[in-house]
Design a protein around this nucleic acid. Structure first.
Lengths: 230, 230
DNA sequence: ACAAAAGTGTTGGAACTACACCCATGA
DNA sequence: TCATGGGTGTAGTTCCAACACTTTTGT
C-alpha cells in the first residue's frame, strides 16, 4: 500500500483567526502588525503555529489570546488553505477559524496592550500572504450563517435596540431592509425580551432595549433551518 | 513577535476523501482496506499524504485516483481534523474532502482493480482513527447542502425518474416525503426536462424519465438560497 | 381482475413583500 | 414648533403542508 509514515513531507501548520466585530455602524475585522522578518510592517490576521500537544481549535484560541488578549471567544473552523506557495518562506498549511464579537466589549484590552486594530470591511489594508482570500471566505460564511440563524446577537451588547440589530444585519449584508418587516420577523421568533428601558442620546424619542432570551435561543438554535433569508 | 519559522513543530498533512454514492435505494460510502502496519485490516476513507508541490485539493484528487481509479470527481473541502492523538503513529493533521457520485457510473472501475467497497450508511464497519467522526460531519454537510441546492442530481444517472429522485432525498434525509409535494417542488424549479420514455421493469405502469437541463442548472446554481428545505 | 406503483389538484394557513402615517422627545 | 428617528398595520401574493383518488399495465 501507499501509506508510509517515513519520508513524507512535513509541513508547518498555522492557525489564523478572523475576528469580526460590530461597533454599531459597520462590521470590522481585527488585524495585527506581524513581525516576520522583512514583512514586519504588514497587517495580518492573528496567526501562529500549532504546538505538538494542541488541538487545532485550542491552538487558535491560544494564539488569539497571545496576540490580542481576547479570551473565551467561540471560534468556528472556516477553511484550510494549503497552496504550495502561500507562504514563501516555508511550506505551510493554514487552518482558519473565525468569530463574531461586539467591538465595545473588548475594545480596551485589544488596543491597549497589543498591536491590534479594527479595520472596517471596506477599508482593509494590504494583507499578508493569502489573508485577503481568507477574509473573503469568512465574509461569505458570515452572511450565510446570519441568514440562517439570528446569529447577529453575538455581535451586539447585552441590551440592544431593534434599530441597532437592523443596522448590524444591513452591515453584514451590505444592504437595507424595510424596518417594519425587519422588526416583525425578529420579534416573531420569540427570542427577544423587551426591557422597560429606553436608549437615550441616540435619538430624541429613544428606542426600547431588548435582550436575548438565551434559554429559548439555545433551545431553538438547531431548529432554525427555516430562519429568514432576506 | 512570536512567529518564528525555526523550531516549530512540523506535522504530516493527510488528505482524506469521503465519497458518497447512491445506488437507487440507499446512500453508500466508499471505503478502502488500508495497509498501514498493524492496522492493515481496517477499513478507512481514501487517505494519503500531501506532497511538497501540491495544493490540498489536488492532493486529495490524486490520492483518490490512486486508491480507487476515480478521476475528475469534484471534491469539496469539508473540515480539518487535528487532535493530537488522532493518529497514534505520528502527529498528523487531516484535511477532509467529500464528493457525491452515482454508484453505477463508477462501479466497475472501483471494485475491479482496487480494494475498495461501497458500504451502506447504516452498515459501516469499524473505521480507522477518527474516520467515523469525519463521516458524521460529512453526512451533516450533505444534508445541509441537499436542502439548499438540488444537488442530488449528481447522484443519479443521466436519465432518472421522479420516484428515484425522491428515494434519493429520502435516503439522504432518512425520512419520507409526500410524493405530490415532492414532485411539484422539483418540477417547479424548471430544471427538469421530461423525456418521452418510460422506465420499464421496476413497476407495471412505468415512470417517465427526466433529465437535468444543465444550462439552467448551471445558471441557477447560485441563486438557490431559496431552495427548499423539507 | 387485481395488485403495484405512477401520477395528479385543491384548500387553508403561514409567511413574505410593499407600502405610509403617527408618536415621542430634545433642541 | 420642528426635526429626528422610533414605532406600528394592512392587503395582496406566494409558498407550503396536508390530504385521496384515478391511471396504467404486468401478471
Amino acid at each position: 500500500m501507499i501509506n508510509q509514515y517515513e519520508d513524507q513531507t512535513k509541513c508547518l501548520v498555522a492557525l489564523d483567526s478572523i475576528i469580526f466585530g460590530f461597533d454599531g455602524e459597520v462590521v470590522k475585522i481585527l488585524l495585527v502588525k506581524r513581525g516576520i522578518e522583512e514583512t514586519a510592517t504588514t497587517w495580518s490576521l492573528m496567526g501562529g503555529w500549532l504546538r505538538p500537544e494542541e488541538d487545532l481549535e485550542n491552538a487558535a484560541s491560544r494564539i488569539l489570546n497571545e496576540l490580542t488578549g481576547l479570551e473565551n471567544i467561540y471560534l468556528e473552523q472556516l477553511y484550510a488553505f494549503g497552496a504550495p506557495d502561500r507562504d514563501k518562506i516555508s511550506r505551510t498549511v493554514a487552518v482558519v477559524y473565525f468569530a463574531l464579537i461586539n467591538v465595545k466589549d473588548y475594545d480596551e484590552q485589544v488596543s491597549d496592550s497589543y498591536e491590534a486594530r479594527w479595520f472596517a470591511l471596506d477599508d482593509l489594508p494590504t494583507l499578508l500572504f493569502d489573508h485577503q482570500e481568507m477574509i473573503n471566505k469568512g465574509i461569505e460564511k458570515l452572511r450565510y450563517k446570519a441568514a440562517q440563524h439570528p446569529i447577529g446577537f453575538e455581535l451586539l451588547p447585552e441590551k440592544f435596540t431593534i434599530p441597532q440589530l437592523q443596522k448590524l444585519y444591513e452591515a453584514i449584508f451590505n444592504s437595507t431592509f424595510d424596518k417594519r418587516n425587519f422588526s416583525r420577523k425578529f420579534l416573531s421568533t420569540g427570542l427577544l425580551k423587551k426591557l422597560n428601558e429606553k436608549q437615550k442620546g441616540h435619538s430624541k424619542k429613544g428606542a426600547f432595549y431588548y435582550q436575548v432570551d438565551s434559554d429559548k435561543y439555545q433551545s431553538q438554535f438547531n431548529s432554525f433551518l427555516n430562519f429568514t433569508r432576506f
